[in-house]
Amino acid sequence: MSTSIKARRAGSGISILDISGDITSGSEAVLMSAYNEAVAHGAKTVVLNFAGLEYMNSGGIGLLVTLLIRAKRANQRLLACGLSEHYRQIFDLTRLSDTIGIYADETAALQAA
């Protein structure tokens, strides 16, 4: 299974990344490319929509850590939405949820953005 990440704008200063398929360390190029596209127009908040996530290993979580650090350095804010209960637990377990705002769905994330 491959990774598909599509960037779209969702209002002033906000972009959404729709993540589908697998997130592993091999997803780095596609994730970083989509992130660059998301912030190219000056977005300061990026919502990661995990509703289409089907598989993630520890390499994938490492990739998200790298993205969080990068966003923090650039004064950008990352939010997450659409996580299934399973992936929500992994965010808690790995303590990513200490740093990234997690919302049930895109509407809730956009309201918080």
Binding site: E54, Y55, N57, S84, H86, Q89, I90, L93
Partner: peptide
């Protein structure tokens, strides 16, 4: 995606959440 099986492929690979 097989929506008939809600268990993710990686479910058995991760530790369970624990405080």
């Amino acid at each position: 995606m097989d929506t008939s099986d809600p268990t993710p492929r990686d479910a058995a690979n991760w530790a369970r959440k624990s405080e």
